[in-house]
Design a binder for these strands. Structure first.
Lengths: 225, 225
DNA sequence: GCCAATCTTGCAGGCTCTGCAAACTTTTAT
DNA sequence: ATAAAAGTTTGCAGAGCCTGCAAGATTGGC
């Protein structure tokens, strides 16, 4: 969104972003080919044409290069969640608040699919993905607390943030192995619907998204798009 | 205590368990005192009175010593879940299936509280705890799949396993900072009830476990125990 | 007591990651 | 344009993690 920011990026920062991207790309490619433990930082740096020491100016650990840099900023989940009308059930409200981030991921589809494939074949990396979601989790806790009026150190906000995070991660992992045309947002929606209806077991007959309920739902903001 | 089991443990294996426990205890104590990054494997080994090399015969990494060894076996979650009567809603059934493990943790209360405190003050360890839950997660996926009749690679079993795992972890973290008399099982029950009712927001007034809602909700299969 | 299996230990070595200080490059001010 | 300031890259030294290997030390079975 923020196209021309107040302070123009400048040639220097552009080059930094470029180097960072090159390092991540090289790391992902090499690890995808050979496996995490058969790639050294030296090789990654070499492939990105910088010195090994420079690698560590960008990433604290080898694994960090695989997960990638910090998400862009923009309005935080916190603000977005509070912007959702009060009548909307929490899980659905969280879905709406996260939608822009999901769109970002979908926009970088290729990198993310590669990244998720790498994580799948190197299970030791999965915890790193969790850690990445954690900073967002902190914020989500605060956001849920603000929305519900509950204290941030009570059970509900923490539970909501962690389980929603887990549902999101599960959706991503499924997206990584789904058919070509499937969009991440649809999987997340499906997962959140199941979560929002208390993990009641779907009938094994169908496997499409089931609208939870026929009639008695009054508030249905149906976020089409 | 250990009378004569089918395969008698033997003096040797007993000593191994002892060494393992000593290493974990030393690791937890030192890291609790100084922080993860200010304790070396050499120091842990020293405190447990073995050589540094021996440390790595027991644990693959320094962090592993903190999390501790593999859980004892016994009937798996898989079997226990299938033993729960079919009418019981999934989340509640999972609670029952996990109860023995929860009791095990409660029985080792002191070690676990220390361990959780260490994890809290060294966030880089949290992913390790997640990883530990992961093997159980694999099994939970299979169990849920078996119980529901859904394929194990479909969304629902995966979602159920990951979110329930997240809820369990959240309960543990809260237990770690709860008042003296609180039992883990009660926190897990509370979390699972919230999860099973779709994360509907409790009214902010009370902070006890609340039956969700007074009036305007038609569809509420109030799980009144 | 003796053999075989197992466990412990030291050693060498590769890899990750950090602090430091010397180039080097871009930006800013003159 | 030129010089100073600010920021970046790099090499080097070194601590610490972790592994493979082979030589001792223990233990269990006969």
């Amino acid at each position: 969104m923020a196209t021309t920011a107040p302070t123009a990026p400048g040639r220097r920062d552009r080059k930094k972003q470029q180097t960072r991207a090159a390092l991540t790309a090289a790391a992902l490619r090499l690890v995808d080919e050979r496996g995490r433990d058969h790639v050294t930082v030296e090789e990654i740096a070499e492939a990105a044409d910088v010195s090994p020491r420079t690698f560590f100016n960008y990433f604290a650990t080898k694994d960090d290069a695989l997960i990638g840099g910090p998400l862009p900023d923009g309005p935080s989940i916190h603000d977005r969640l509070l912007a959702v009308p009060a009548g909307v059930p929490l899980v659905r409200a969280l879905l709406e608040a996260m939608t822009p981030d999901i769109a970002d991921i979908q926009a970088e589809r290729d990198v993310w699919l590669l990244r998720l494939r790498v994580i799948k074949s190197n299970p030791s990396l999965l915890p790193i993905l969790v850690a990445r979601g954690e900073c967002a989790e902190e914020e989500t806790i605060a956001a849920v607390a603000a929305r519900t009026g509950l204290p941030a150190d009570s059970m509900f906000p923490q539970l909501a943030a962690t389980t929603v995070g887990a549902a999101f991660r599960t959706s991503m992992m499924r997206w990584a192995t789904a058919d070509e045309g499937v969009e991440l947002i649809d999987l997340v929606r499906e997962a959140f619907d199941l979560l929002g209806s208390g993990l009641t077991e779907p009938s094994p007959a169908h496997d499409e998204v089931i609208p939870t309920e026929p009639s008695p739902a009054p508030t249905h903001e149906e976020v089409t798009r």
